Each structure stands twice: as structure tokens, then as C-alpha cells.
Amino acid sequence: MSDGSRPSDAAAEKRMKLRYAGRCRLCEAELPAQTTAVYEKSTKTVRCVECQDHSPSEQSTHVAIARSEEAPSQSRAGASARREYERRKEKDEARTRAKWGRLGGVAVALSDERQSTRAWERGAIGEERLGARLDALAPDIAVLHDRRIPGTRANIDHIAVTSAGVWVIDAKRYKGRPTLRIDGGIIRPRTERLFVGGRDCSKLVDGVERQVSLVREVVGEVQVTGALCFVEADWPLIGGAFSLRDLHVLWPKRLTKVLVEQEDGGVDVEAISELLATSFPPA
């Protein structure tokens, strides 16, 4: 909503039998007609019952939230991106209605969304899907979603706190295959660049490195690792994941596997997650 207010969960969602076949917004499972699912009014999409426990309205930071519903660490994956999408969508529709007058409703129905507006929804869905996977790792791993960087308009998509350290995770819903390109190394200085589908996306690495640096300032000697997680990229059947400037580039299933397989480093998960939740409030 443009004024920042949000409807209650009961008003925003409805459990129902589908009249028509659909697809779960989070896990993309096919949902035949007459399947019981959850309809989300705000996004006009459905999700399967299996994903209900990890829905955006129910996502939490596990350890900190368990003690109080008023905890400052409360957050939802993709919340700020979805709010921005709704704001831009409302603005675009209002502009179209003003231009076409009485035919405004018809014009809105027939118009395609602007690419810049649709990009925010794509980003929100990517964060929500990854967020659901990360939430499933609780209670061993604490996860903070959509955290605001104080003093800026930027945010951190996900922060995962494990007994081995902290992970700063940026979710991207890009098409194409992520690849590492290395230039120089003998005569010229070695440079590493990230390409996705042939496009130079190295600026994404710069962004995560800045986020990692900010988190390190908060947690001190605790190990902090950065990751770029591409939700719908064209990954090969064998291999594919790589590191670039100490940053992991991988996909959701691979990321969760890496997180759960880390050796115990003695990190106090609850204390560190609470510290980070205070330092980086919900966006």
C-alpha cells in the first residue's frame, strides 16, 4: 500500500479450493483445479498448502522472534521489494486512468506493466522463494530477511547465522548462465568478472562486498561470508557453482547444502542474530 500500512494476514489471504489450475508462487508446483491452496489477495497469486508454513506473512527470524511477537528482528523475505512493486503499479495505473478518463479501467486491463515496475515483482518473488528455503533450516540456523542498511535506502536480502559464522546473501532472479571470466594474471593484473547470460554483472559483486564489510563491523571476529544466489539461472547439471573475490556464486539448493554442512565454529547463533537484528532493522 502506498501509505506504508498493511492489511491483516486474514484479510490478505484466503484458504480455498481452486476453480482453475494454477502454480504455487513459491515452489512453482502445479496445482490442479479443486486443489486446496492459499490465495494471496495482495499479489493475486496462489501458493500450495505445503508452502503455507513458510509464507511471507509467517516468515520470522526464528530465535529472536520466538520470545516475542513485538521483537525488532521481525521481517519478511522480499517485503520491501514487493511494497515498491505495489507502489509503482498503483502509480502506473493512476497515470493510465487519468490519461484515458472513462476508458481508464479498460486501458489498465489491456496495458502491459512497465518493465521497470515488473522487475520489482520479479525481485520480490526471488527473495520470497529463497527465504522459504532458508527458513526451513531452522532452528539450527537463524535467518534475517530484508534488512535495512541504516542511513541508506539499500537493504540486505538475507542474513543467515550458523554456528560457523554469518552469511550475507543477495538473491537474484536472473535468466542466463552465471559464469566467471578471468583476465590477466601473468603480465597484466588479474581481474575477475561475473557474467550472467553474456551480460557483465560484476557490480552485483561490489554490492555484496559492501554489505559483507558492514556486517563485519557489527560482529567483529565472527567469520562473515558473502553469497550471490541466482534463483532461476541456467545452471549446468554438473558443477556450476564458483567463487569470485571470496564471494560464493550458486543456486538455492546448493546454498542450503553448504550452510548445513559447515563445521561447528562455536558461534552463539542466538546472540549474533539478535545483534544483527538490532543493527540492521527490517526494511
Rank of each mutant, 00 (worst) to 15 (best):
M1N: 12
S2G: 06
S2A: 12
D3Q: 08
G4C: 09
P7W: 09
K14N: 14
M16D: 08
M16L: 15
Y20C: 04
R25A: 14
R25S: 12
P32W: 12
A33T: 06
S42L: 15
R47E: 01
C48S: 03
C51E: 07
Q59G: 06
H62G: 00
S73A: 15
S73R: 01
R76C: 11
A77Q: 04
S80H: 06
R83V: 02
D92Y: 07
W100A: 09
R102E: 13
R102F: 14
L103P: 05
L103R: 12
G104Y: 07
G104V: 02
A109Q: 12
D112A: 14
E113Q: 10
E113Y: 02
E113K: 07
R114T: 05
Q115W: 07
Q115D: 15
E127S: 07
E127I: 03
R129H: 09
A132N: 06
L134N: 02
D146S: 08
P150I: 08
G151E: 09
N155E: 14
H158P: 04
G165T: 08
V166P: 02
V166D: 03
K172L: 02
R173K: 11
K175C: 10
G176I: 02
I182Q: 13
L194T: 01
F195I: 01
G198D: 12
G207R: 11
E209K: 10
L214N: 06
V215C: 08
V215A: 11
V218M: 10
V218Y: 02
V224E: 05
G226V: 00
F230A: 04
E232G: 07
D234A: 15
G239D: 11
S243M: 12
S243L: 08
D246A: 11
P252S: 07
P252D: 10
R254W: 06
V267Y: 07
V269S: 09
E270K: 03
E270S: 11
A271D: 14
L275F: 00
L275N: 05
T278H: 13
F280V: 01
P282I: 04
A283S: 15
